[in-house]
Computed example of a mutant assay.
Amino acid sequence: MATLSNPWAMVFLPDGRLLVTERGGALRIVTTAGAVSAPVAGVPAVVFAGQGGLLDVALDPGFATNRRVYLSFSEAGNGGSGLAVARGTLTLDGGGGRLDGVQTVWRAVPKVTDTRHFGGRMAFGPDGMLYVTSGERHLGSPAQSTAQTLGKIVRIPPDGVLPAVADPRPEIFTLGHRNPYGLVFATDGRLFSSEMGPEGGDEFNLITSGRNYGWRIVSEGNDGEVLPRHATRPEFAPPLVSWTPVIAPGGMIQYTGTRFSGWQGDFILAGLVQQGVVRVRVTGSTATEAARIALGARIREVEQGPDGAIWVLEDGGSGRLVRLDPA
């Protein structure tokens, strides 16, 4: 299989190859046989520091005709670094490819000096809007501020054009998040996220417009002090599942294939600390952990292949792309 430098995210192209991001700033085309292209040209400059760099990659719903690709990344600016989203048109060639017409369509505000908790996961909704997770940059209180987009899940039009409103920011969809690293629209149209907790308290959440998920007022984990639990403040949306000790969830999918018998409809979460994947089953408005599959490595990302196989990216400087099949 392929080996990459700090891989973070991947998405399958219609031809069966993958676009894979490396946090250092390279976007690569990778075959399922393990061939890795030269970096795709035209990728925006990133700040590769701490947890920042080139993060998620998503295909426009109309990719088959418009060839448009979206990237999330940390960029430099006044006051430090911040999460941004850009889009461009992908042209493939024998050596890799290039992005043309690249434009930044959204920036988190404000920029800060801390290099943790960028979030950066993207998902297109049934409404055609782009949803993006924005971490609170390890600062806590910005997650509750409606004048900032830190600690939020935001919703933006694909071209990024939003009303010029300072407070509340018009793109805020939900608030009170710490560092969401998974974001999936389920087959029933509902939105789910996975989120890293502090000392315990990782979360799997049903995301509902306008809800406040409580960080840093409540948590199922602690943060250098014992924090109140969600049950003490019912105005905050509690997680459907929480984990203590942590699994440190990375990317997430809902499995829709048939290759893994009995898994259809379950959510598969990459586990960094868990060093494998975690399967979560949702039934109506409740959810439970169904299984854990140990893989012996920190898993950053998970994706479903066209044939129903599951692919994962290992975290780190020599992270492998690995195909998983039923035992």
Rank of each mutant, 00 (worst) to 15 (best):
P110Y: 00
L139D: 05
L130H: 00
G125N: 06
G119N: 08
A143H: 05
T133L: 06
Q144P: 04
V105P: 06
H117T: 01
V109H: 03
A108L: 12
I153R: 13
S145M: 10
E136F: 08
Q144I: 07
R116Y: 06
V105G: 00
G135R: 10
R155K: 14
Y131I: 10
V154N: 12
P158C: 13
G128R: 04
T115C: 04
L130C: 01
G160R: 01
D127A: 11
V112R: 14
I153M: 14
D114Q: 14
A143V: 08
G140M: 06
P157E: 10
D114G: 14
L130E: 01
S141V: 09
T146F: 08
L139Q: 15
E136T: 05
P158A: 15
S145N: 12
P110W: 08
L162C: 04
G119Q: 08
A108R: 02
Q144K: 07
Q144M: 10
R107C: 06
G135M: 11
T133V: 08
M129Q: 13
Q148F: 02
R107D: 06
P110H: 03
T146H: 13
A108H: 06
V109Q: 13
R121T: 12
H138S: 15
R107N: 06
K152M: 09
S145C: 03
L139N: 08
T115L: 14
A143Q: 05
V112K: 13
V132K: 02
